[in-house]
Write a protein that binds this DNA or RNA. Structure first.
Lengths: 156, 156
DNA sequence: ACATCAAGTAAAGCGGCTTTACTAAGGAGA
DNA sequence: TCTCCTTAGTAAAGCCGCTTTACTTGATGT
């Protein structure tokens, strides 16, 4: 497939391909740093719980899954020492799910890896006289979703 | 989330979000035209079988799944009248899977829908003084995949 | 006290894929 | 020709990650 063929592909295809390749490369690099036991959904969970933490139900909403699914993810991460269920200040049945140090470490490593990858990509684009199409992608998202952006679904 | 916030998001996030939204809108419109019983993987199957058709194993390769999975997809589509298994000219156990008229109709409808959607999107971008970032996306794909582009995985 | 509501959990189901294991049909070499 | 290897296809089971259905538990308001 030549560059020419690629440029004449559907926008939808180009977006999907670029996304999947970028995500795969990110995962490859992250695994190489020793974090091989976590999938994208876990990384997104960490993002969603950063700072004050959240309840399972809040997590479910942020991830765009049922609260049962969120509960299962929390079960799994708790077993493996990435999160803890602590009593919720607001009381009730609520439990506040918070990140452990282990999760914070992972967040840091993931952030570093992603920024490095994107920086290298930016450089390659600049070498080719192209820019990173942030504004264009943001505009596409705006056009399609308006003001309430739904969760990015953590599919592979 | 403001435009500003969006533009400062990770490139990976922007790509994923744009892709998922575009695909969802495409599916929404296609369903509205009465083709509600097919998922992206089926559309990709139709693309892969267009023209002379292919064997299940070839289909598997083009979709990036096992040949058993491809066989199951073909079973399903055959039951619903979208494809047929015909004797393969090269003989052996091979069977040539070919599209029926019903599948060609769907391909046409899907093509029309997608082009219309992308054309509208292009117009909106132009109104905002932006272009469709084909070259940029193609370059990203090139950088990450080199010359052999793997199949776009049909995840939702 | 009682109804109601929200958070959480438990269990089963399910879709779509992989893994494992097998059958069927050539082709090549002794 | 007989056997071996290769390739296409199929069958069955397993599995992962999610949803659906149904329940329990605690707080709130009247």
């Amino acid at each position: 497939m030549s560059d020419d063929a690629l440029e004449h592909s559907e926008l939808t295809f180009l977006l999907g391909m670029a996304f999947q390749l970028l995500l795969a490369e990110f995962a490859r690099r992250l695994n190489a740093t020793g974090h091989a036991d976590l999938r994208p959904v876990h990384g997104m969970t960490f993002q969603a719980l950063r700072g004050p933490g959240a309840t399972s139900s809040e997590l479910a909403e942020r991830l765009g899954v049922t609260k049962q699914a969120a509960g299962q993810i929390v079960d799994d991460l708790e077993r493996r020492g990435y999160v803890e269920r602590t009593p919720h200040p607001a009381g009730g049945r609520r439990k506040l799910v918070v990140l452990t140090g282990k999760a914070h470490e992972h967040l840091l490593a993931a952030g570093r890896t992603l920024h490095e990858l994107e920086a290298q990509l930016t450089e390659r684009l600049h070498e080719a006289g192209l820019h990173v199409p942030r504004a264009e992608l943001a505009a596409i998202i705006r056009v399609l979703a308006g003001d309430d952006i739904p969760p990015l679904r953590p599919v592979w």
